[in-house]
Computed example of a mutant assay.
Amino acid sequence: MLPMDKQHEAKLGLELATKRQEHADLDAAIATLSASGLADATLLQRLKKRKLALKDRITELERHLLPDIIA
């Protein structure tokens, strides 16, 4: 993999932080809705699907920003 320039690395770092926060917010919303007992099953399913997509993007960003170092 080619090394990234600092501007691109910073942009990906910012996106990573944003996605992590959105993931945490969705996790809290899902927990609150589930605990309330009033949640629409379709809404919960959509939120969980969005959370999973965010997790996939987070993993991808981490792979780019924190490459494996072979020891």
Rank of each mutant, 00 (worst) to 15 (best):
A10D: 15
S36T: 11
D27E: 13
T59E: 15
L44R: 04
K11D: 15
R46Y: 12
T59F: 09
K48D: 07
A28W: 04
E22M: 01
D25L: 08
H23F: 07
K11Q: 10
L44P: 12
A41H: 02
K48S: 14
D56S: 10
L16A: 01
G37R: 09
E62Q: 11
L12H: 01
L33C: 09
K51M: 05
T42R: 08
A28I: 10
E62D: 13
L14G: 07
L61W: 09
G37E: 05
L14H: 02
R50I: 07
S34I: 02
L66V: 13
I58C: 00
R63E: 14
R63T: 15
K48P: 06
A39T: 10
T32I: 00
A24V: 01
K11A: 10
P67W: 15
S36K: 06
G13W: 09
A17N: 03
M4P: 00
R57V: 00
L65V: 02
L61F: 14
A41Y: 01
I69D: 02
R63I: 09
K48G: 09
K19F: 13
G13E: 05
T18N: 03
I69E: 14
H8A: 10
M4G: 00
E9I: 06
K55F: 06
Q45R: 11
M4L: 13
K51C: 03
R57P: 12
H64M: 09
E22F: 00
R46S: 12
K49C: 02
L12D: 09
A17P: 00
L26F: 07
P67F: 12
H8Y: 12
K48N: 10
A31L: 08
L65E: 12
R63D: 11
I69Q: 09
A29H: 01
K6F: 03
A31W: 01
A17I: 05
L16I: 08
L38A: 15
Q21W: 12
E9M: 10
K51P: 03
D25F: 06
G37T: 12
L12Y: 03
S36A: 07
